[in-house]
């Protein structure tokens, strides 16, 4: 999608991190990635591959779940993020949209959006930002007075993304935006992500199981398998890679395959690791 010829400025650098939950469960076994400024980077992989953990390690939300980064470094614009508190990380411009939306159910849609501006000051600026969010999500403006708990899944995803935008982020960590949404709605959400990326210059790091959609919108991608990066590259290259095609897109040279024929999956992908 984007022709990346010139070297880009790196916004976020994750270097060989290990994450342990509850002092015993090793979830990430040395994940490294670098996110270029102004791009959409996809973090792909199946259930339990470590996508969410990677995002939470960056946003500092691991601590409240008894997780801990035990090795490696995370630097954002040259600043170390490990050990920083989540509020501080939000202030420095990185905000996470959690998997499963996590709206404040009993607050109205508008109040939800306003909590996103918690770290911001200035009534005028906040009002402008709110207007900006309503421009991206006109549907939310219609529903501004409804309790978020009673809005649909798609609307809740919009609330979650809009809420993150209210913090004036430089970078959004977007976790599984397609979860539980109809394909059409998924497409709509990704279109909005793309336009926010292009118009506001917000960098996205996007964890997604829906590989085909993610690779169509992302500029580059990383593929995680049980806590390790097994492959990375430009989205266009990943899309054409025969293994990605077979394992993640369910296609092969002979067209779509039945799941039974993907038995060789585990054995064949070993070389990737």
């Amino acid at each position: 999608m984007l022709q990346v010829a010139q070297p880009q400025e790196t916004l976020l650098e994750v270097n060989n991190i290990e994450v342990i939950y509850n002092h015993v469960i090793l979830v990430l076994k040395g994940v490294s990635l670098s996110v270029p400024k102004g791009g959409i980077t996809a973090l792909l992989g199946g259930n339990g591959a470590g996508k969410t953990t990677t995002l939470k390690a960056i946003s500092g939300l691991l601590k409240s779940e008894r997780g801990e980064v035990t090795k490696g470094t995370i630097t954002y614009q040259g600043k170390n993020l490990i050990g920083a508190d989540p509020a501080g990380i939000v202030r420095s411009g990185v905000i996470q949209v959690m998997e499963g939306r996590h709206c404040f159910e009993h607050l109205t849609v508008e109040e939800n959006l306003l909590t996103g501006a918690y770290t911001q000051a200035g009534a005028k600026q906040i009002a402008d930002d709110l207007e900006m969010v309503y421009n991206y999500f006109p549907r939310l403006k219609e529903r501004r007075r409804s309790q978020a708990g009673y809005t649909s899944g798609g609307e809740q995803q919009m609330v979650a993304i809009g809420r993150a935008l209210m913090s004036r982020p430089e970078m959004i960590l977007l976790d599984e935006p397609s979860m539980g949404l109809a394909p059409q709605l998924v497409e709509q959400i990704f279109e909005i992500v793309k336009s926010v990326n292009e118009n506001e210059g917000v960098t996205f790091l996007l964890a997604e199981q829906n590989t085909s959609v993610a690779l169509r919108y992302a500029h580059s991608g990383y593929i995680l398998e049980s806590g390790r990066v097994v492959m990375d590259g430009l989205a266009a290259d990943l899309r054409e890679n025969p293994d990605v095609k077979e394992f993640y897109l369910g296609m092969s040279d002979d067209g779509r395959k039945s799941f039974r024929d993907v038995r060789s999956y585990r054995r064949r992908k070993r070389w990737l690791a």
């Binding site: 946003s59 409240s64 508190d85 989540p86 404040f104 918690y118 770290t119």
Partner: peptide, 23 residues
């Protein structure tokens, strides 16, 4: 108020409140 709203947000969802930068 901002802090009142944050208070209700925390009541609803600790994790989400943390994620938007509420201490």
């Amino acid at each position: 108020t901002k802090h009142g709203r944050a208070m209700r947000a925390v009541a609803d969802d600790h994790q989400a409140a943390l994620s938007v930068g509420i201490s």
